[in-house]
């Protein structure tokens, strides 16, 4: 599948934003501190920027509001509805924190639950597609949810080290969530690499009864929408390297950095926050790589008609 930058940025940013919103909604940061107030604003900004980015790939973005209507059948519509509903408790919580320096459990917990539900809807858009077998597994929403939680905890750790709360606790939680997320993702990738394709050129053409089917001539000489959108291929050697980069930058580096910070305890908060900031940047680069691979490595059933 073609890795569209707008979708990669959307899922990465909104994942981090919703993850941070979950942590804030659970009241794990001290609402009286400046760091927590900034965290509230940042969570909403990341979610908003992600959603804006997702409309960039639309052919007619001015009609995007129509996407809220088919929540009965469409996961994309459900995602749209949930993202808007989720803004209500998130803005409420942010207001209460920023203006009144308080934490309210009702909007907080509602925001946490709805944030996770929105991420689940995003994941289900991909999971529901039987035509992309690698995505069509319960491991897909598991990975999206765990990565959102882990990313949120990494961002929250940064703000905790900057004075927002119990930094050691958050850093340990972030490390644990990161490990869980990457274990799930490793299982997801093993499933993708070892799956037996349910559709083949033989089933796609119905000619399997005669023999082995091979594309002899394409229907056209140049690329078309289908080969561009669904025919993206990445060399195996690069995929393996990029996977390594994703695991190291997205998982290993932030886990080690956060655990070291948690063990060393409160050095100077500025140095700790800077260290946590490096962990977060590394995690973001790793996540962008992971999301790029999520699309680039997935094979679409239509490629059975294109020898792809």
């Amino acid at each position: 599948m073609h890795p569209a930058p707008s979708i990669i940025i959307f899922t990465t940013l909104s994942g981090l934003g919703y993850g941070l919103a979950v942590v804030l909604g659970l009241g794990l940061l001290d609402p009286a501190t400046l760091a927590t107030k900034i965290a509230h604003v940042l969570a909403i900004a990341m979610i908003g920027a992600g959603l804006m980015s997702s409309t960039l790939h639309l052919g007619n973005p001015q009609r995007a509001w129509r996407a809220l209507s088919q929540w009965r059948s469409s996961w994309l519509s459900r995602e749209g509805v949930m993202s808007i509903v989720t803004f209500v408790p998130l803005l409420w919580s942010a207001w209460v924190c920023v203006i009144e320096s308080r934490y309210l459990a009702l909007p907080g917990l509602a925001g946490s639950v709805l944030s996770l539900a929105t991420v689940f809807c995003t994941a289900m858009i991909y999971t529901s597609l039987k035509s992309v077998q690698a995505w069509h597994t319960p491991l897909t929403p598991a990975c999206y949810l765990l990565f959102a939680a882990a990313g949120g905890l990494v961002v929250a750790s940064l703000f905790a080290f900057a004075g927002g709360g119990n930094a050691s606790l958050l850093a340990v939680l972030a490390a644990v969530a990161l490990m869980a997320a990457w274990i799930a993702k490793t299982a997801w990738r093993r499933n993708m690499l070892t799956l037996v394709p349910i559709s083949t050129p033989e089933t796609a053409t119905g000619l399997g009864a005669i023999g082995k089917v091979r594309l002899f001539e394409r229907p056209h000489v140049m690329e078309n929408y289908l080969t561009h959108e669904m025919g993206f291929k990445i060399a195996r050697k690069h995929a393996a390297k990029l996977w390594g980069i994703a695991v190291v930058l997205g998982g290993a580096v932030p886990v080690v950095a956060l655990l070291v910070l948690a063990i060393v305890g409160q050095v100077s908060s500025a140095i700790a926050a800077m260290f946590a900031c490096v962990a977060l940047l590394s995690h973001i680069i790793g996540m962008l790589t992971e999301r790029w691979l999520f699309f680039a490595e997935a094979r679409h059933a239509v490629m059975n008609y294109y020898n792809g």
Binding site: G59, R63, S131, V132, V302
Partner: peptide, 13 residues
Amino acid sequence: IGCGLCAWACPYG
């Protein structure tokens, strides 16, 4: 809206 999800969902292109 031209989101393209239906084209992704169709296994036949």
